[in-house]
Design a protein around this nucleic acid. Structure first.
Lengths: 346, 346
DNA sequence: TTGTAGGCGTTATCAG
DNA sequence: CTGATAACGCCTACAA
């Protein structure tokens, strides 16, 4: 395991100065005679030269790296986002550092620190912590920030959000259009802006249609966990069914929960969608593999990742054309878990 | 956006040399008087000093970063692995760079290159490319490598694998113990060692029990994609059902495919598990949310990530205690998709 | 077109 | 205990 070759080594071998080698090997526009250029490239190849980015980056004071802080990569929603980010990053010769904050503000801060130390100049974050003081301070030191999913109300932070309100509205509206009037909404704790927005979307749609809302909210705070969501879905369904008259449709705040809803209904021999319709939220793949395939709302997660990364790179290039926040629009994935009950006695 | 403070700035403010500042701020064991130490720490804090790792790392020639190359982070199996890796990495002040190779050897090589350039000294890889020449060359240059999931037959590469063979055996055996004799195996293309091992496990178990194997293999090569697996499951089930007498149990090479199997059976009004039992493979969360909950084989993915990272860090510390390859053992998750048919006329 | 030399921020060696 | 000073690998005025 000998020392790696540097531009100086190559300079010696070629009997030129290291400056010239640098100019050739870094594809500088600086003029170098063709003959020399080729010789140097040749030698570099033969000696398996690998540039040391630390040197380069120290000099340039930037690291061709972007940081991504999200609650948990295990949440398929976020892994799609990252997938999009990573794709764009790679195309631009950037590298991605992934950080799972686990919804823990302390961890989030710790990661922010490491990111700064590593001279990362761009960050995509779905932040959960209330206190944005560290973040704003770091921005003053030159950190470019794009907030995804969870809004950050600070100047110079560009947002790229989902239109949760519209999504909630859209889902509810769709159920109404299929003739449903008693539509229940089951949701995990309304302790995050995104969840509150969906809820509000539901409320607006009900109000606009002159219908009485029926909401059941879970009180347990939890870190993302598929099974928990599922169980919550079951429990909330139980509660919901205590109401009389029973709803003809149930809208769940995420797909896992919708699975729970369907499961609970089946266990009580209530047919979906014959007796009760179910609307999900998220559009995860398995939704189309269950029975009945789940009608749901799809948020463009992968696209969010790509767009976030593009915006971030623009921002870092000091592209001073003004930036705008983006609100990504939801899409209805119509499958088979909702029944059209128009024109029926019910 | 002014220049960041360096140890020199702090040195000036404290009227000491930058050497002393370095010794204090890097927690060196080098003796510094208590009084000075405190003063420097104080000033560092007041001036919001953030160390520049590029400088440090250039000097030390290492980057406190590990690289992870996997086919795709969208595959929940790999996102669990990464989750485990990231956790251990963080605890040891390491940072993780994630690379999606998309099963493309060219991309894999590209990533390897960037990783080396960034002076990353440790790599965890699930490699898909046949040609390991670049990898071995990089190892000579000091790259520490742990291979996960996909075996790499090179010296100095430590393996941490799943026991796919045993897993396949275990699954088949379980079906047999429930009285099944005509057990079909549906699998995606047997073009990877892992898949071949499961298949062989199945074959051994059938042979040991004196039963005739019944295998249907997909011929399409594909990148990981949940829906594709599902559809493949459906198609292969169709084929399988053409055989007579029909199997009483179907074992699928992954859970998504098992979902497809179940779906196809339901569509043909074949009850699971009453008429045909189904065994999955992977243990993804949603398996317990479908109907019937899927009996399956769980590979310890998260643990694999943790272990891989621990081993890698040991390796990088030049811990010269000999390393051993690890074979992680599968576990049967018994749920409701398999029926006990012992003592029946069938 | 090429070379020289200084510096990016940090640590380590060697004197004081 | 503290301080100069020389690296680490690369880039870039500036000079030739």
């Amino acid at each position: 395991m000998k020392k790696p070759t540097t531009i100086h080594d190559i300079a010696k071998m070629a009997n030129v100065s290291s400056a010239t080698v640098s100019r050739v090997l870094s594809n500088s526009s600086y003029p170098v005679s063709k003959e020399l250029k080729e010789r140097i490239q040749q030698i570099a190849k033969e000696s398996n030269y690998i540039p040391n980015m630390l040197g380069k980056q120290l000099k340039k004071n930037s690291s061709n790296t972007i940081g991504v802080i999200i609650p948990s990569i295990v949440n398929p929603f976020y892994s799609s986002v990252i997938f999009g980010i990573e794709e764009v990053a790679r195309q631009n010769n950037f590298t991605v550092i992934v950080c799972n904050s686990l919804q823990d503000p302390a961890l989030e801060d710790e990661y922010l620190r490491t990111i700064m130390e590593k001279q990362v100049k761009g960050l995509i974050i779905s932040s959960i912590s209330k206190d944005k003081s560290q973040l704003t301070q770091l921005m003053k030191l030159g950190l470019n920030v794009i907030a995804i999913d969870q809004k950050i109300d600070e100047d110079n932070v560009n947002q790229i959000e989902f239109d949760y309100h519209k999504a909630g509205y859209l889902a509810t509206k769709h159920l109404q259009e299929k003739g449903h009037e008693r539509i229940g909404y089951v949701t995990s704790k309304l302790d995050r802006p995104s969840r509150r927005s969906i809820h509000q979307g539901y409320m607006s749609a009900m109000k606009d249609a002159g219908l009485k809302p029926l909401v059941v909210e879970s009180q347990t705070e939890e870190v993302y966990n598929a099974i928990t969501e599922f169980d919550t879905g079951k429990q909330l369904t139980q509660k919901l069914l205590e109401h009389s008259p029973q709803p003809t449709a149930i809208f769940a705040c995420n797909d896992m929960m919708a699975f729970g809803v369907i499961n609970e209904l089946s266990q009580r021999d209530i047919q979906v969608p014959e007796q009760v319709s179910v609307m999900g939220f998220d559009g995860i793949d398995v939704g189309q593999m269950i029975h009945p395939p789940l009608t749901t709302i799809k948020q463009p997660d992968y696209e969010m990742g790509k767009m976030a990364c593009k915006m971030l790179l623009d921002m870092m290039q000091g592209d001073d054309s003004p930036m705008f926040d983006v609100m990504l629009q939801p899409k209805l994935l119509e499958r088979k878990s909702i029944r059209d009950i128009r024109g029926e006695g019910k």
